[in-house]
């Protein structure tokens, strides 16, 4: 890439980032959605409250919303989770450190998604691409999101209290 092209691309990235934030900020003020920069699925993620269905709709830029919703619904039924799609969405809305610790309850390789139970009726959804590996159902997953990047932390040994 030439310097000119690199500069043009950089400008484009900067400009559209502002535009997208403007959109999400607008939607947030409308009470429609929350933005969760730690979670990526083909780009930034928007969660929109769908008034007509009195439910939360996961609206992904790659139009995978229905797939994601279906994954959550099926996992809830399959694993008899005390978890509703709304709880899952609310979990995404957390604004603290972005820590996600809990058992993997479903993995969908085709859709590239991992559903994790965080306990107390909450769950979290991760992209396999962000994790860099395919976790197994039932295993403990400890993920932290920082600056939009997912990092899987080393498990802590119960015997030694140390990571591996």
């Amino acid at each position: 890439m030439t310097t000119t092209a690199t500069t043009a691309l950089h400008d484009l990235l900067e400009a559209t980032q502002d535009a997208f934030q403007g959109v999400t900020g607008w939607a947030k003020r409308q009470g429609l959605q929350g933005v969760f920069p730690g979670l990526k699925l083909g780009g930034d993620v928007v969660i929109i409250k769908d008034d007509a269905r009195v439910n939360y709709l996961l609206a992904f830029p790659d139009a995978a919303a229905e797939q994601v919703e279906a994954l959550i619904d099926s996992a809830i039924v399959k694993h008899q989770l005390l978890l509703t799609p709304k709880d899952v969405v609310l979990c995404f809305a957390r604004s603290k450190e972005g820590l996600c610790l809990g058992k993997v309850v479903d993995v969908d390789v085709d859709k590239g998604l991992v559903l994790q139970s965080l306990g107390k009726g909450r769950g979290s959804l991760h992209c396999i691409a962000d994790l860099g590996r395919v976790p197994k159902i039932g295993e403990m997953l400890d993920v932290v999101y920082r600056a939009g990047k997912a990092t899987e932390r080393a498990p802590v040994s119960l015997e030694t209290g140390r990571g591996r």
């Binding site: 403007g22 959109v23 900020g25 607008w26 769908d50 008034d51 007509a52 609206a59 139009a63």
Partner: peptide
Amino acid sequence: VQSRGLGICDVIRAEMARVGERDVAELATA
């Protein structure tokens, strides 16, 4: 950048489907 554009499309579509008062000035600007 493309996915950001599709995200904007999603928000616009959601607004189109919404019933009630609309204030789309900021959305239009973005």
